[in-house]
Design a protein around this nucleic acid. Structure first.
Length: 288
DNA sequence: CGCCCTGTTGGGGA
DNA sequence: ATCCCCAACAGGGC
C-alpha cells in the first residue's frame, strides 16, 4: 500500500544506508521496469554513480546521483524496495543495485506495474510539474490553496484527491481517511466546497497522512511478509475496509461504494453530501 | 479445479 | 472533463 506515508517511510529507512553509497553494478531483469527505455541504458546510467541523496516527491522515490541525474522510482501497487545484506533471493525480483562494499538494493514487484526512469536534474522540475501537485506535508497546502485547486471542478471529491495533479501522494486509502476526518462526502463535487470545507479537508489530509507516517514502518513490514494478514496499519484506518462497522465519530454504519473505479468507504451520516455550488452570474462579483 | 471478484496506481482512449 | 479499461498477479468465495 505505498501511498505517501509508506513511500516516505521507505525513504527514511533507506536514507542512512544509501546516502553516499556507490552503485558498483546495476541489473535490470524486467524490461517493463524501464520501458520504453532499454534496461541496458538505465544500467549504464547507474553503474559507477554515487547516491548523493534519497528524496521523495508524491509517491515517487528519488535517488539523486552524482553527474547531475536522478533515478526516479514508482512502486505503484505491489512494488517494494529491500535493502539486502544476506544474499536474499526474493520472488518477483525485477532489479538489483549492487552497492560498493556490502549491500544490495532489491526492487521486487509481483504485478510489474512499478516503474523506474533516469532523469536529468535540470528536467526534474518539468517532469514532476506535469505529474504532481502540491506536497501536502510541505506547509504549502492551505485551505485556501485547496479551494483554488478545486474551484469549478465537478468531479467527486474522491476523484479530486486521487488525481495527483492537485495534491500529490494521496491514494485510495488516505483519500477515504481524509474525507472522513473532514466530514465530507466522497461524491460531493470538488468545486462545491466552501472555505470552511477546504480548511477541514486540508486538516483531514494532513492528519490522515501523519497518522499513516506514525505507523508506516510497521505496516510495510507486515505487508512485505504476509500479504493477506492484517497489518498494524490497518487498525489505524477509521473507515477504510470497515463497511458495516460503526463510524468512530457518530456510530452510524460505515458503507462501501465505488467511486472512480475504487472501493470507497464513508459514513453516510456524518459525511454529508454537498450540492453543486450555483454558478455565479458574470458581473456579480461580490459575495458574502 | 476453475471461474469470478477484488485490489495499494496511473495512463490512455472513448 | 470524466469515465472505463487495462496492465499482471494473488487470494478468497463459490
Amino acid at each position: 500500500m505505498p501511498e505517501l506515508p509508506e513511500v516516505e517511510t521507505i525513504r527514511q529507512q533507506l536514507e542512512p544506508a544509501l546516502t553516499g553509497a556507490r552503485i558498483a553494478a546495476a541489473r535490470v531483469m524486467d524490461e517493463r521496469w524501464t520501458r520504453p527505455v532499454a534496461p541496458a541504458e538505465v544500467e549504464e546510467a547507474l553503474t559507477g554513480r554515487t547516491i548523493a541523496a534519497v528524496e521523495r516527491r508524491g509517491k515517487y522515490l528519488l535517488l539523486r546521483l552524482d553527474a547531475g541525474r536522478t533515478l526516479a522510482m514508482h512502486l505503484r501497487m505491489t512494488g517494494n524496495l529491500l535493502l539486502d545484506h544476506a544474499g536474499l533471493d526474493p520472488p518477483y525480483l525485477r532489479a538489483v543495485l549492487e552497492l560498493s562494499g556490502d549491500g544490495r538494493l532489491l526492487f521486487t514487484d509481483a504485478r510489474r506495474f512499478g516503474h523506474a526512469t533516469v532523469i536529468d536534474d535540470d528536467e526534474l522540475d518539468t517532469y514532476f510539474a506535469g505529474r504532481l501537485g502540491v506536497e501536502p506535508l510541505s506547509g504549502a497546502l492551505t485551505g485556501e490553496e485547496l479551494c483554488r485547486l478545486a474551484a469549478g471542478r465537478r468531479a467527486p471529491l474522491k476523484s479530486f484527491l486521487l488525481n495527483q495533479l492537485g495534491v500529490a501522494g494521496i491514494g485510495n486509502i488516505y483519500a477515504d481517511e481524509a474525507l472522513h476526518r473532514a466530514a465530507l462526502h466522497p461524491l460531493s463535487p470538488a468545486g462545491s466546497m466552501k472555505p470552511d470545507d477546504c480548511e477541514r479537508l486540508r486538516d483531514g489530509i494532513v492528519q490522515a497522512l501523519e497518522a499513516g507516517l506514525r505507523t508506516g514502518g510497521a505496516s510495510i513490514d507486515d505487508y512485505r511478509d504476509s500479504r493477506g494478514e492484517q497489518g498494524t496499519m490497518q487498525e489505524e484506518f477509521l473507515v477504510h475496509t470497515r463497511a458495516g462497522e460503526p463510524c468512530p465519530r457518530c456510530g452510524a454504519e460505515i458503507r462501501r461504494t465505488v467511486v472512480a473505479g475504487r472501493s470507497t468507504y464513508f459514513c453516510p451520516s456524518c459525511q454529508r453530501r454537498l450540492r453543486r455550488r450555483p454558478r455565479r452570474r458574470a458581473g456579480a462579483g461580490t459575495s458574502g
